[in-house]
Design a protein around this nucleic acid. Structure first.
Lengths: 80, 80
DNA sequence: GCGAATTTGTACGTATGTATC
DNA sequence: AGATACATACGTACAAATTCG
């Protein structure tokens, strides 16, 4: 049970809510630079969304340059 | 019947092939700056792919800054 | 003004491939 | 060999805003 949950009724779509939550968790230091963030499957379970939605959330952070995804490995917080 | 078709056996995934084709068509002047490129539905019919694949192709060009998408309007070649 | 059609946005589930561990 | 994890693709559904007759 995550501290933050998405609000399916909010005007901001779930994938962006999850991206925002992950961004906060990273900036809060929960995931240190170089460490791996939750896998897509874990995000699916944690936030109860489809895998595509979890992927899109991660894609947002990747586009921002906040994380780096390594195929078949995972997604990592960009080293400082 | 498009001049170029995607090759489902190529190592490059369909969405990137379509993005490359559209990029060439734009640079060839088929779509002038400010003009609209084919809609997602048209790309679906032309290249015989799912809409999600067509959307991804357009997203590539958008990420490159080559085109600009206006919700409920269409996607346009970025004005010079 | 109204309603239908159009077009993009978002989300769901599922399947397969490939590389890593 | 098996489990894990990301990449890609398919189809489907509905929402929201714009356009057009």
């Amino acid at each position: 049970m995550p501290d933050e949950r998405i609000d399916p009724y909010a005007p901001v779509p779930p994938y962006r809510q999850i991206a925002a939550i992950l961004r906060r968790r990273i900036q809060a230091g929960e995931f240190a630079p170089g460490s791996r963030i939750p896998t897509e499957s874990e995000l699916v379970e944690t936030y109860e969304v489809a895998r595509t939605t979890a992927r899109r959330a991660v894609a947002v952070l990747r586009d921002e340059g906040l994380v780096i995804t390594v195929p078949q490995r995972g997604t990592y917080v960009r080293p400082v």
